[in-house]
Design a protein around this nucleic acid. Sequence first.
DNA 1: TTCATGTGTAATATTTTTCTTACACATGAA
DNA 2: TTCATGTGTAAGAAAAATATTACACATGAA
Lengths: 101, 101
Amino acid sequence: MLRVFSALANPHRLRIVATLSANGRNYISQLAREVGISRPLLHLHLQKLEEAGLVTSKLELSDDGKALNYFEVTDFKIVVSPRMIETAVQTLTADSKKQGD
Amino acid sequence: MLRVFSALANPHRLRIVATLSANGRNYISQLAREVGISRPLLHLHLQKLEEAGLVTSKLELSDDGKALNYFEVTDFKIVVSPRMIETAVQTLTADSKKQGD
DNA sequence: TTCATGTGTAATATTTTTCTTACACATGAA
DNA sequence: TTCATGTGTAAGAAAAATATTACACATGAA
């Protein structure tokens, strides 16, 4: 939960999710051009989104032999409310860092 | 929106919301003791939660004359989905920092 | 007056996140 | 082979978030 909120607490990552949702699945290099950020940076953001379970990736071979890593958004639907947070907090560890979705 | 996600992207703040939701309104010093963090730090976190609209504060005079700043959670209910994020992203400014709820 | 309680905030670490730059490796086409 | 395209990641700089410490101020009770 904390991991999900952290993933969404960044303008680039919100745009990435929005773009993937609007335009459908895409591979890193192409998506980087569309979103307007560098590939290594996008790679980092996609990693966080994937760890949060908001996107998934699948490595595919293109016709001309390139290995393309395709990303797409998952069908998440999270209702955030005080009660929901009460429940979610119980899953936080003592050192309260990131952890199991 | 970004502001809300950022506010929730922290274990202390999640606990603060959960505590206020479970135990009802409370003033800073008392809440600091319950949550187990310093008062200045709690003050900072409450500020972020209030800017995000997740809690509200009200200054009150106690019977013995002390000025107590009471906080309570708002009745927020936010449904987070890819489509919702598509919409929310449109409200991001070019320099994409925090901004109007 | 002094103590215990409450309020707020400024200045300074400290820690995390974010971002850039550079490297290494692979494939098909020219 | 060289070029254009794709992949990944490591190292360090830069920026932002987090946390501590210390200060200032107020009130009622002892």
